[in-house]
Design a binder for these strands. Structure first.
Lengths: 112, 112
DNA sequence: TCTTCATATGAACACATGCTCATATGTTCA
DNA sequence: TGAACATATGAGCATGTGTTCATATGAAGA
């Protein structure tokens, strides 16, 4: 509850003017939030290996077909995955190579 | 509720053997989850510009000092930020250059 | 030591999120 | 067209999560 804390106004201003826009902050954290769930990460990791239809993904995962579909919807809305129809099947795959890069770097991060 | 869906067992097995370990999946999604909140992303974005003490961060953000401290705790526990004490002040900064790389790639992703 | 200041912690609450069940949509093939 | 199958959607529920308030901790200086 102390408002008179150390605040160095120069630093604060410097940072405030250098920060990404609020829109960018929101957009970028949205991407990370999507990757920040084990189920979705498992989906994305699977699609990094091979394009897959929903049924195959459900077989790979530990959640229901419905659950997979709900998550794929989110991932697709944010352009993390894209779809291709082949008859009755809908194949999902990674939409953008940036996503692969991000995950590659994160993998090397956790492996220190 | 259809268990007899398209499942192509060859693809499923191929992907299952290629997936990262469950531990890796959990660890990596943990990192992304931390970056996947606008407040924490704002904190991390600020620290990318300059090391800052808690009070300065609270002045930059739209949440209380307590809120900032809680989030910093999470970020520190997962080695996204590190601390340095200087008298009464505790300066926070980005712990690992991988974090900067991940955010750089994500920024170029959202800017297409 | 006592006060002051910066930071950390715990409890509590409102809200978001991921899952399943049931069902709808939409495509293929007879 | 109608049956069969793959996928999508909506409701509902249990669990997580981000925030604030109040307070504790701990370092610096009188």
């Amino acid at each position: 509850m102390n408002d008179k804390c150390c605040t160095n106004q120069k630093n604060v201003n410097l940072v405030l003017t250098g920060l990404p826009s609020e829109d960018d902050i929101v957009d970028i954290s949205e991407i990370f939030k999507l990757l920040g769930d084990p189920s979705r990460m498992r989906i994305v990791s699977a699609l990094r290996i091979k394009e897959l239809c929903v049924g195959d993904l459900a077989a790979i995962m530990e959640i229901s077909q419905s659950g997979v579909s709900h998550q794929l919807r989110l991932l697709k809305k944010n352009r993390i995955v894209k779809t291709r129809r082949d008859g009755k099947l809908i194949y999902y795959s990674i939409d953008d190579s940036h996503i692969n890069s991000i995950i590659d770097v994160a993998l090397s991060h956790i492996h220190e």
